[in-house]
Design a protein around this nucleic acid. Structure first.
Length: 112
DNA sequence: TGCGTGACCCAGG
DNA sequence: ACCTGGGCCACGC
């Protein structure tokens, strides 16, 4: 599989996350047709320069923000999520379910 | 050519 | 909630 194609598909999957909703790195990878390649997703986001890309909607599978708590990037992600109406408590999006639940579904503002 | 290093994930303990 | 160990793999040195 051509790496460039993978890159495009992953970025497309990220762009496909609706405002106000979030998805896990692994989830994004699966939607891009690359199961098990969450790290690749993380790598792409880390190197991304496109300001239109909604990178802040991508979280770890447990609902926590991937950056070290309190870091500038962490803060920015929290702010961006809240600006879209996503509830964030202690760097974590509300998650009621087993570990990895984020990877099983997508949360929207209406859900508990 | 190896080896360490990540915006990761998962099953277990 | 935290730690371990195994998977994953592009990159840099």
């Amino acid at each position: 599989m051509d790496p460039k194609s993978n890159c495009r598909r992953i970025l497309a999957a990220v762009r496909a996350i609706p405002a106000g909703q979030v998805a896990g790195y692994g989830e994004v990878a699966r939607r891009a047709g690359l199961p098990g390649r969450a790290r690749l997703v993380a790598r792409l986001l880390a190197g991304n320069e496109d300001p239109r890309l909604p990178w802040h909607r991508v979280l770890r599978s447990d609902g926590r923000i991937a950056f070290p708590a309190g870091s500038p990037s962490w803060q920015e992600q929290v702010d961006r999520l809240r600006a879209e109406g996503v509830e964030v408590r202690n760097g974590r999006v509300r998650v009621a379910g087993p570990r990895g639940a984020l990877d099983a579904e997508l949360w929207g503002p209406g859900r508990r």
